Computed example of a mutant assay.
Amino acid sequence: MANLNEALFLLVVGMLTVFVILLLVVAVGNFIIGVTNRFLPTPRIPKKNDTEGDKGIHPKKMAAIVAAVDVVTKGKGRIINIGKTKSTK
Rank of each mutant, 00 (worst) to 15 (best):
L10C: 03
L10E: 14
L10Q: 12
L11S: 11
L11C: 09
V12G: 00
V12L: 12
V12R: 09
V13R: 15
V13E: 12
V13P: 00
V13H: 06
G14M: 05
G14N: 12
G14Q: 05
G14L: 04
M15L: 14
L16F: 11
L16M: 15
T17H: 05
T17W: 04
T17D: 03
T17A: 06
T17F: 07
V18C: 09
V18M: 13
F19G: 06
V20F: 06
V20N: 05
V20E: 05
I21E: 08
I21Y: 04
I21T: 11
L22C: 02
L22Y: 11
V25G: 02
V25K: 08
V25M: 07
V25N: 03
V26R: 15
V26G: 02
V28K: 02
V28N: 02
V28S: 02
V28H: 03
V28D: 03
G29D: 09
N30K: 15
N30T: 08
N30A: 09
N30R: 15
N30V: 04
N30L: 11
F31V: 03
F31C: 08
F31M: 08
F31Q: 10
F31Y: 13
F31T: 10
I32M: 14
I32K: 15
I33D: 14
I33Q: 15
I33N: 12
I33W: 06
G34N: 13
G34L: 05
V35N: 00
V35L: 14
T36N: 08
T36D: 10
N37T: 03
N37F: 04
N37L: 08
R38D: 01
R38I: 01
F39G: 01
F39D: 06
L40T: 11
L40S: 05
L40D: 04
P41D: 12
P41H: 07
T42N: 14
T42W: 02
T42V: 10
T42H: 07
P43V: 12
P43Y: 12
P43S: 08
R44L: 08
R44T: 13
I45T: 13
I45A: 08
I45H: 03
I45K: 14
I45M: 12
P46C: 02
P46N: 07
K47N: 04
K47Q: 10
K47T: 05
K48A: 13
K48Q: 08
K48S: 09
K48R: 15
K48V: 12
N49F: 06
N49I: 02
N49L: 14
N49M: 06
D50Y: 07
D50R: 15
T51W: 05
T51Y: 05
E52M: 03
E52T: 12
E52F: 05
G53R: 09
G53Q: 14
G53H: 10
K55G: 02
K55F: 06
K55C: 00
K55L: 10
G56Y: 06
G56W: 06
G56V: 03
I57E: 00
H58D: 14
H58I: 01
H58Y: 05
H58G: 00
P59C: 00
P59S: 01
K60G: 01
K60A: 09
K60F: 05
K60T: 06
K61M: 10
